[in-house]
Simulated scan of single mutants.
Amino acid sequence: MVHVEKTINFMGMRKTALTISFILLVISIGSLVTKGLNLGLDFTGGTQLELGFEEPVNLNRIREVLGETGLENPVVVLFGSDTEVLIRTQESMEDEEQRRIERRLVELDPQASVTEVRRVPSEMVDFTQIVQVSGVSEEQLRESGLFSRALYGSVRFDTVGDSVEVAVERSLDNVYISYLMDAIAEATDSRLELRRSEFVGPQIGEELRDEGGLGLLFALFVVMAYVALRFQYKFAFGAVLALIHDVIIVVGIFSLLGMEFDLTVLAALLAVIGYSLNDTIVVYDRIRENFRLMRRGTTEEVINSSLTQMLERTLITSLTTLMVLLILFFMGGELIRGFSAALIAGVVIGTYSSIYISANLLVSLQLTKEDLMPPPKEGEDQEPIAP
């Protein structure tokens, strides 16, 4: 029999813990239903720019410039160092350039507008896009300087019926990026260069969201099957419900605080599942062992004894993990802040759920020693055949 000098009565607070978990789940689900998630570009689609400056710049000034150019709620953060800036926006650079052209067309004629933007035919090798404009003449467009060679490269004007088709060498998204860089350089009085630009389409973002959700569900199914095979089905229910509990609360925290939810956070959720499961498996292993070693004691007493024995190991593991995550959160930069925040919440909640959800449910499911007895071997109960 395993001897424990002082056993902590964890299960004495099981009803209080269930109440706390219920309240947290209600708040999380309520926030997800009413506020939803602040999805990042990975899921919604948009544009990301990485700019390099010669010297540190004022991020607030860059945000002001982007707002003045028409971008709504852009995200501007430092990337790696105080001279590297990351700009993320849900707007399409091509759509923004089209709107900028339309604003300038209205100055020429209130009836003028962009009727179509399309790719050029394959035989026009020197051009990339055609902008079809109505409401103004070809002569007005030429004289206005709206399609300047400095931004658009080679430009060709053709009158087709009542419209003017303007073939441009540089694509509209690249034109708008150059326009933004010129505006930022002028406002900050600093030289800069474009390190990288990428666009995520909304269709790709939708696929990432769906596949990520399916990945979470598949992970939970595999966990349930694994625990059921290694232990017993009551353990499987406890493990999976604890993981669902952890994921909902972590996602609810992001919804409640309005933090950006992107692919790094989704990866953190999968890591939380792995961490919480590992902690739960260690606790379950000790509970199973003590059920077989302790000849006396109720289910609650065996679980209390097991949790007490594992407390030191659990706390040391969780605290050392949290120390690393806190350093990442405060010193790792904006790009991994969501990732580290999700893991911090997941480690804390996962440690709690290993005790008060996983183990607690074993009591609710009335786990007994008979549930853990190995099945009799075939022919074990048969009478031996006399010689």
Rank of each mutant, 00 (worst) to 15 (best):
V2E: 09
I8D: 01
N9S: 05
N9V: 05
M11T: 10
M13N: 12
A17W: 06
T19G: 15
T19D: 12
F22D: 06
I23Y: 12
L24K: 04
V26H: 07
S28D: 02
S28G: 09
K35Q: 10
K35W: 04
K35I: 07
G36R: 02
L39T: 05
G45V: 00
L49E: 06
P56E: 03
N60S: 08
R61L: 05
E68N: 02
T69P: 00
N73F: 05
V75I: 03
L78V: 01
G80S: 02
D82M: 02
T83L: 01
V85F: 00
R88E: 01
T89Q: 00
T89W: 00
Q90N: 00
E96L: 09
E102Q: 10
R104H: 02
L105H: 00
A112E: 05
V114R: 01
E123G: 06
V125L: 04
V125A: 06
F127D: 05
Q129T: 03
Q129G: 03
E139R: 06
R142H: 12
F147A: 03
R149Y: 04
G153A: 01
R156D: 07
F157K: 00
S163H: 03
V164S: 07
E165C: 03
E169T: 04
S171K: 09
L172D: 01
Y179H: 08
Y179V: 09
M181N: 02
D182R: 13
I184W: 00
A187E: 07
D189E: 05
S190W: 02
L194M: 01
F199A: 04
P202Q: 04
G205I: 01
E206I: 04
E207G: 05
L208S: 04
G213Y: 09
G213F: 10
L216T: 09
L217K: 10
L217G: 10
L220E: 04
V222Q: 07
A228R: 12
A228F: 13
F231S: 14
G238P: 07
I244F: 14
H245M: 09
I249P: 15
V251E: 06
S255H: 06
L256V: 14
L257K: 07
L257G: 11
L257W: 11
M259Q: 11
E260S: 15
D262S: 07
V272T: 13
I273Q: 10
G274E: 11
Y275F: 15
Y275W: 13
S276R: 11
N278T: 08
I281H: 02
V282G: 08
D285K: 14
I287F: 10
R288S: 13
F291Y: 15
M294P: 11
R296S: 14
T298P: 06
E301F: 11
I303Q: 08
M310E: 09
L311Y: 14
L311V: 12
I316K: 11
S318Q: 08
L322R: 10
M323G: 12
L326A: 11
F329V: 06
G332R: 02
G338S: 14
F339Q: 03
A342E: 04
A345S: 15
V347P: 05
I349D: 02
T351A: 13
S353V: 04
S353I: 03
S353F: 10
S354W: 10
A359F: 15
A359V: 15
N360H: 15
L361Q: 09
L361H: 08
L361W: 12
S364I: 15
L365N: 12
Q366W: 10
K369S: 14
M373C: 14
P374I: 04
E380A: 12
